[in-house]
């Protein structure tokens, strides 16, 4: 018994010493600032910066191949903290959020019966996703799956971004087979939730909430070019964004013009005409 305790104890001590020596002898020099920057980063490893996770990005920032503002998740304050830690000057950056440019949920659009894989990128291979509108959201949630922050909700077969949860990592943008997701400044709340370039009549046939380019919103914004007309589609001018009361003032007949916050809260459900 005693022999066993002693022998195991000696063995343990011996191994401990060896490990200690090896760790010292073969230690890799690490810039401790990398860890410091890493601690200031969000740690979500979303990949939005283009690097393989936060640690990789921290290394790049310390090595000055990247700047702190490349992290889409960090707030302005976080970035200035990192810049302050490294003693560099941070650039001002505007917070961006994703918008799914479609308001055609199951209740408002024509869809045919689809049977197959419940994933947008697979579904789009079958009859273009089996939605009456060729351009609309398929609602199988490939973007929601790609979002590491749970900011996209699928409600009534429509992907809806919650702007307050979105950090702007852009993971959802590339997965949408209909290219519906764009990044917009978080400060802008007024968006056109339609992306179909078809004629108004054709759109109305398949969707109650399509933008029919009636230009009421353009007129409501008066002299200011808050809204831009592009063919049969109106778009928000993000360089000269409209005030939130434009939605109220323009009385969009199809409710395609929406406030992102109200849209996320379900404020437009059941109001289409």
């Amino acid at each position: 018994m005693i022999a066993a305790i002693v022998s195991v104890g000696v063995l343990g001590a011996l191994l401990g010493v060896i490990i200690g020596v090896v760790a010292k002898a073969f230690a890799v020099e690490v810039d401790e600032r990398i860890e410091g920057v890493g601690d200031l980063l969000p740690g979500a490893n979303c990949g939005g910066c283009g690097y393989a996770g936060c640690a990789d990005f921290a290394k790049a920032v310390v090595g000055e191949t990247a700047t702190p503002d490349q992290c889409p998740v960090c707030s302005a304050e976080d970035i200035s903290n990192i810049a302050g830690y490294l003693g560099i000057v941070a650039e001002e950056k505007e917070k961006m959020v994703a918008v799914v440019r479609c308001s055609g949920n199951a209740s408002n659009t024509v869809r045919s019966l689809y049977n197959g894989v419940r994933d947008c990128r697979s579904a789009v291979l079958v009859a273009g996703g089996a939605k009456g509108c060729d351009y609309g959201c398929l609602g199988f949630g490939s973007c929601a799956d790609a979002c590491p922050f749970g900011a996209i909700e699928i409600r009534d077969a429509l992907a809806i971004v919650h702007p307050e949860l979105c950090v702007g990592c852009e993971n959802c943008v590339a997965v949408c087979p209909k290219n519906l997701i764009v990044m917009v400044p978080a400060s802008v709340d007024v968006h056109v939730y339609c992306n179909s370039p078809e004629k108004g009549a054709a759109k109305r046939k398949v969707c109650k909430t399509a933008c029919i380019a009636c230009r009421k919103c353009v007129k409501a914004s008066g002299e200011e070019d808050h809204m831009l007309v592009d063919g049969f589609l109106v778009k928000t001018n993000y360089d000269n964004p409209p005030p939130t009361d434009l939605v109220e003032a323009s009385a969009c007949p199809t409710t395609a013009l929406r406030l992102a916050s109200k849209h996320a809260a379900g404020g437009y459900e059941g109001v289409s005409k």
Binding site: S112, L113, Y114, N115, G116, L125, V126, A127, A130
Partner: peptide
């Protein structure tokens, strides 16, 4: 009736 046609792969 086209509305009742199923689409699948």
């Amino acid at each position: 009736d086209p509305a009742k046609l199923i689409v699948s792969n």
